[in-house]
Simulated assay, not measured.
Amino acid sequence: MKRVYTFFAEDVLFSLSFVIAMISFAFGKFSFGSIDFKVIFCLLGLMLFVKNLEKLGILTYLADKMIDFSATTRSLIRNITILSFFSSMVLTNDVAILTLMPIYLTIIKKFSKMENKILGAVLLIIAANLGSSFFPFGNPQNLFLFSYYSLSTLSFFKWSIVLLLASTLILMFSFLFIKKRPLPPQHNFVPAINKKKLFFLSMVGSFILLGVFNVIPYYFVIPTAVVLLTIYDRDMLTQIDYKLLWTFIFFFIAVGNFAQVEVLSSFIKEQFTTSTRTFFGSIFVSQFISNVPAAILIAPFTEQSQALFWGLNVGGLGTIIASLANLIGFKLYKEYYPKQSNAFLLQFTAVNFVFLLCFILFFTFIV
């Protein structure tokens, strides 16, 4: 019983999705058609690829290089935030935070009197959430939307470039609020990257992207990539977050079952009939169940795909549960500074809602 309790208690969203899926069976009949297998397969392939890329130490290498150019506290936070922003485009927001947050926290421990430590961690998380919105594979909700609405690559980038430009401007402005204090010089040993392994992983990653972008059928690309990556390093299979995959499956099942309830379907459809209502509605829902489940819940009931895309990605800002990446960042910070968890939550919430307000004001004129 202890093992069962621990299994479900350590991942609240997974447990919640399981319970909701079980309840949904009382309202509708299960169908495999409710599950978007492309999303599941592509997520599996990308997670396996990212784990191998992370193990190779590319982000650590880039982070250490950037630290060499950081003369002040402002430049240090700016550099690690920018790295988080751009790396999350390819490596997903979760992985960017999982990799860069420990590096950032290790660095700032060397500077006991450094100011704006929490603000730097918060900006790193925000940057990862925003940067991951540029590509369909940068975060789970975009991968789902790209697949569910059968979006063309051109349409997706027309939407994401708007969000990218707004994110860049707001982030750059936020750096002005970081105090500029000199940092003592650091002499870090930067290990070399194995170029042969980097080339191999780059080829496999490009192959996976062909499946994501529908150039080659995903049901051929992903199994092939999984086999290649398993041969390359079979231990990586044990490090995949399979609970995330099952969380998606459970939400697919729940949405498919609940969609058969005519009263509920009609109610949700009425709430997301226009682009404005869809934009604000998806932000609101994300604050309580996070933007990934919100995407799965709302998408079947609205044709406002553009507004939903902007709303869900902006909706990752705000509360600590608005995005799964937020929880990951908080958990990591708490491990390093357990006495500062309350201070982190307060500052995280305040800064996130300021960012959220800025984006709402920006998109109000174009939604």
Rank of each mutant, 00 (worst) to 15 (best):
L83A: 05
F41Y: 12
F330W: 12
N313H: 04
P140C: 02
S286M: 08
F69G: 01
F362G: 03
K55N: 12
F135V: 08
I298A: 06
G329V: 01
L210P: 11
V95N: 11
I118T: 12
F220N: 15
Q239C: 03
S160L: 07
F111K: 05
Q304L: 06
E115K: 15
F251K: 01
L361T: 04
I170V: 10
L183S: 09
V263W: 13
K117N: 08
V19W: 04
N313W: 06
L105I: 04
T60C: 02
C358I: 00
I77S: 03
L123Q: 11
T92H: 03
V314E: 11
S152F: 05
I20N: 02
I82H: 05
L163T: 09
S34G: 03
F363S: 05
M22H: 06
Y148T: 00
F213T: 03
M114Q: 04
F288N: 06
L59T: 09
I107W: 08
F280C: 01
V221Q: 12
N188R: 05
P191W: 04
L245N: 01
E270H: 12
I298F: 10
L100I: 12
L83M: 00
F207N: 04
F363A: 00
S290A: 03
I161H: 02
I77T: 00
I216T: 14
F41K: 08
N188G: 04
V226K: 13
I240A: 06
K243V: 12
A192T: 14
F250K: 01
S275L: 01
I193H: 06
Q287N: 05
Y218M: 09
S323R: 06
S202H: 09
G45H: 10
S275W: 09
T92P: 08
M172R: 00
M203R: 07
L16E: 10
V215R: 07
M22D: 02
S265L: 02
K331G: 03
L44W: 13
S286E: 10
F157I: 07
T224H: 00
D241R: 06
T302L: 01
N139F: 06
L245W: 07
F207A: 04
D241F: 08
L43W: 07
V204E: 03
V95T: 14
S84L: 03
T73Y: 00
L123H: 14
F362C: 10
F156V: 05
K334H: 14
K197F: 13
C42E: 15
K65V: 11
V285P: 09
G33E: 14
L327V: 08
S24H: 11
Y104K: 05
T153D: 12
T274I: 00
Y336G: 08
G281S: 02
G138L: 10
V367C: 07
V215T: 11
L105C: 13
L119D: 14
L327Q: 05
F8T: 00
L91E: 09
R78F: 13
E270Y: 01
V12W: 14
A350W: 01
S266M: 07
I126D: 13
F27K: 07
L62C: 04
P185H: 14
F288H: 08
L83T: 05
V50E: 10
I366D: 15
L53I: 02
L332I: 15
S87I: 11
L124Y: 13
K29T: 15
G311H: 09
G131L: 03
P223H: 01
L16A: 15
L62E: 01
E10N: 14
Y219W: 10
L237E: 04
K269H: 11
